[in-house]
């Protein structure tokens, strides 16, 4: 084997390995969208799936005697100048009964801002059993400068909730919609 062949072989190996490095770096970023797809296929839960709460019909639901603790939690993306918190943090509820709670929102800035709330339920196994009849998260919310509102949530826990779940947390993440699109978009980045 002469030296030129050797150098060429070396160079080819180096190029292939460098491409592999770049490819894997790209793969890391490709995982961001792939992750959602993967979660849908394999059932590994992600936030965007968990947030897909249902609008159910309240008819034919039987009340049951269990007392379930539901906790409310909120977080606001730093780009949204709002205060946002549940009026009540904890509630003891019976499955099959309709409840209403309020969330207090206040716009700290002097400009009109539109926000979108994204719900998620923990444990995620309870997601399908929390039925929201009316929720501010169904729509975008627009607050004028310094405006405060109480935003209502009407919900019911289905009596089919598995016995082992005794408490659940409903968490809202609130973020700003820069140029509010015509339809609420669940994965809009802030």
């Amino acid at each position: 084997m002469n030296s030129e062949v050797r150098v060429r072989n070396k160079r080819r190996t180096i190029w292939l390995l460098s491409l592999l490095v770049l490819g894997m770096f790209g793969f890391g970023f490709a995982l961001v969208p792939l992750y959602d797809v993967l979660c849908q296929i394999t059932g590994i839960q992600s936030v965007s799936l968990r947030s897909a709460g249902e609008i159910a019909n309240p008819a034919s639901e039987q009340e049951d005697s269990r007392l379930i603790t539901i906790k409310f939690d909120t977080s606001v993306h730093p780009n949204l100048p709002w205060d946002f918190s549940p009026v009540e943090r904890n509630l003891q509820v019976h499955p099959g009964k309709l409840y209403q709670v309020d969330f207090a929102a206040r716009n700290r800035s002097s400009e009109t801002v539109t926000g979108q709330a994204i719900p998620s339920v923990a444990p995620w196994q309870a997601t399908a059993f929390l039925n929201k009849l009316e929720c501010f998260c169904f729509n975008q919310q627009t607050l004028a400068g310094r405006q405060s509102v109480d935003m209502p949530l009407r919900f019911m826990i289905s009596p089919e909730l598995p016995q082992e779940i005794r408490s659940l947390t409903l968490s809202y993440s609130l973020m700003k919609l820069e140029n509010a699109p015509p339809e609420p978009n669940k994965r809009e980045k802030g």
């Binding site: 995982l31 965007s48 993440s173 609130l174």
Partner: peptide, 10 residues
């Protein structure tokens, strides 16, 4: 950041 539509689990 979950508040911006991301996922910490990612």
């Amino acid at each position: 950041d979950a508040a911006g539509g991301g996922d910490p689990v990612l």
